[in-house]
Design a protein around this nucleic acid. Structure first.
Length: 304
DNA sequence: TCCCAGGCTGCTT
DNA sequence: AAGCAGCATGGG
């Protein structure tokens, strides 16, 4: 379509500067949304996005990106990082008069929601159940190193590995997957990969449906319940009201908004919808990251 | 040693 | 409908 003449007018480079204010790259990449990013000694982060290795460096009001190869454009990265989102406008939609959420925003300002590939997100969170984030990272890393497509790297390593495709995983055995230490989650991941690879579930087409339609499709998968579905709806499909409730979020909402009294699921859902509003998912990520990094200790069930 | 982890499934009440 | 054991594996 676009011929060589058009391309020759464009700047092709292996690095770029993405201007963006209010972006805490480290908080964002370590906040339990993604599990396949590594931070170097110098503070830079490396990962694979849309099949391309990339190094990210936080700059004042910008993110510097270095790829392994020349790039015609950087939409794949801007989409992933969501650099066009105006954080001030998003935060302005948060509920006023919520001292706990305000404290989280003060402590974690610059935390962002990413826009991930649906398969990688779905597979990662199938592997997440009853696992600590550090362990999820280990499993995902192992899965990528063993079965992911090698891609050219600009770092000290010659290659990096993309997240394995549904077809690649579908061709493996449960034993192959258990070698990545994913335990009882192996059959769930394998079955999901096979159904996606067979076209029984089209993750790309789901983006065209409503949030509830997409949720129902995700819930058809064995090993995927409310929480994992909400993670995929929020982190991959970008539905701003999706609100994953894990043990941490359950704990913090019970403590902050219900005086530590037990809350039935229906009531909890109603509160979340009415209180957090149009960007509830963003609120959730701030609360989650806040309690895990700042005041997690006084929320633990042992001291609770 | 014991409890817990960005849960879900299937079996009991 | 709601409660609950079991599930693999590793961290604290």
């Amino acid at each position: 379509m676009s011929g060589g003449i058009a391309n020759s007018n464009r700047t092709r480079a292996a690095s770029t500067i993405l201007p963006v204010a209010d972006y805490d790259l480290s908080a964002t990449l370590s906040s339990g949304q993604v599990f396949n990013w590594e931070q170097a000694e110098d503070g830079s982060w490396t990962g694979v996005v849309a099949g391309r290795w990339v190094r990210l460096i936080a700059r004042p009001d910008a993110i510097e990106a270095q790829a392994a190869e020349l790039q015609d454009d950087w939409r794949w990265l801007r989409t992933f990082l969501q650099t066009e989102v105006n954080l001030t406008q998003t935060l302005a939609t948060f509920p006023e008069q919520d001292e706990h959420l305000l404290a989280a925003v003060r402590a974690c300002r610059g935390l962002r929601l990413l826009r991930q590939n649906p398969w990688e997100c779905l597979a990662s969170f199938i592997l997440s159940s009853t696992k600590q984030i550090v362990q999820i990272r280990q499993i995902v890393r192992s899965l990528c190193q063993r079965y992911g497509q090698p891609v050219a790297s600009g770092g000290s390593d010659a290659v990096a590995n993309a997240f394995p495709t549904p077809a690649r995983i579908a061709a493996l055995s449960e034993t192959d997957l258990r070698a990545c230490k994913m335990g009882f989650r192996a059959p769930y991941l394998l079955a999901a990969a096979r159904r996606v690879a067979a076209g029984e579930i089209n993750l790309d087409a789901l983006a065209a449906g409503s949030m509830n339609e997409t949720r129902l499709q995700l819930l058809r998968l064995d090993g995927v319940g409310e929480k994992i579905a909400d993670c995929v709806l929020l982190f991959a499909y970008g539905y701003p009201t999706a609100f994953p409730v894990d043990v941490w979020v359950q704990r913090v909402i019970t403590k902050y908004y219900f005086r530590n009294r037990t809350v039935r699921p229906v009531r909890l859902r109603r509160f979340i919808t009415e209180h957090f509003g149009e960007n509830a998912g963003y609120c959730q990520q701030y609360l989650f990251h806040y309690i895990r990094t700042q005041s997690g200790k006084n929320l633990s069930s042992r001291s609770g």
